[in-house]
Write a protein that binds this DNA or RNA. Structure first.
Length: 239
DNA sequence: GCGACAG
DNA sequence: ATCTTGTCGC
């Protein structure tokens, strides 16, 4: 798909903050999409020895949730892991997956926070705004905000608050299993985000994220194996 | 200054 | 995230 003019990814934390502040005004906190026919899930993995970040973007038909496409890509690691700057580490390789895609999914689920971020610009918002597509953030743990534990029953949730503002929801996707943290990314309301995540969850982690996670691990292992091939190749040629 | 801190 | 074996529980 076509990409808009992007900002640099080779930045200092101070520049990263400036970028987050600038992009923050572009977030659409309301539903802005037509009927959902496809949903996507992305996840990123790292191979430190090769300084590579790899990603898997899985596209599903909706609501039947059949896998209709799997796209992989890898890029050099360009940024360290620093809380609140996750996007600068993971977005580059996610975008390279989208460059290989003709049509983006109607909704994209990311493994991390969206609006539930100190500057309201978590991973899901960053990807959503840059590609201008509907996104939802679903994280396994909290970055910021206060909340009361929701009831143990699947479907129950409580709101995540920060500085007097609702920034997301703590949602139970399974009975008696630790909740997930849902927040909007772009062009989706929080209520819709909660409903969709619940609808796409069979186990604790929503299917798009779960499948993307297994796919990226498969892909990363393939790259690790090819490393052995490369080494033997050099050996065979006496390099 | 100290503690917290998505993946 | 990644490194790693067995093990407790539905």
């Amino acid at each position: 798909m076509k990409m808009a003019k992007l900002h640099s990814w080779n930045v200092t934390p101070k520049q990263a903050i400036a970028i987050q502040h600038k992009l923050r005004d572009k977030i659409k906190t309301f539903d802005d999409f037509d009927s959902i026919k496809t949903v996507g899930g992305v996840d990123v993995g790292f191979i430190k020895e090769k300084n590579l970040s790899c990603a898997a973007l899985v596209i599903f038909s909706y609501p039947d949730m059949r896998i209709i496409d799997v796209i992989n890509s890898s890029e050099p690691i360009s940024f360290p892991y620093i809380p609140t700057f996750l996007a600068f580490r993971e977005v580059p390789v996610v975008l390279s997956c989208f460059e290989k895609l003709e049509n983006p999914p109607d909704i994209l689920i990311l493994d991390g926070q969206g609006y539930a971020h100190p500057r309201r610009m978590g991973l899901a918002c960053h990807v959503g705004v840059l590609l201008d597509i509907p996104t939802i953030g679903c994280a396994k743990s909290r970055l910021v905000g206060e909340f009361n534990m929701p009831d143990e029953k699947k479907g129950s949730y409580s709101y995540l608050y920060d500085k007097g503002e609702i920034i997301g929801a703590v949602l139970r996707t399974r009975d008696n299993i630790s909740p997930v943290f849902v927040s909007i990314g772009h062009r989706v309301s929080l209520n819709t985000a909660i409903e969709l995540i619940l609808d796409m969850s069979i186990t604790r982690i929503p299917e798009p994220t779960k499948i993307a996670d297994s796919e990226v691990k498969k892909y990363a292992n393939k790259i690790r194996e090819s490393k052995l091939e490369q080494e033997s190749f050099f050996k065979n040629y006496g390099i």
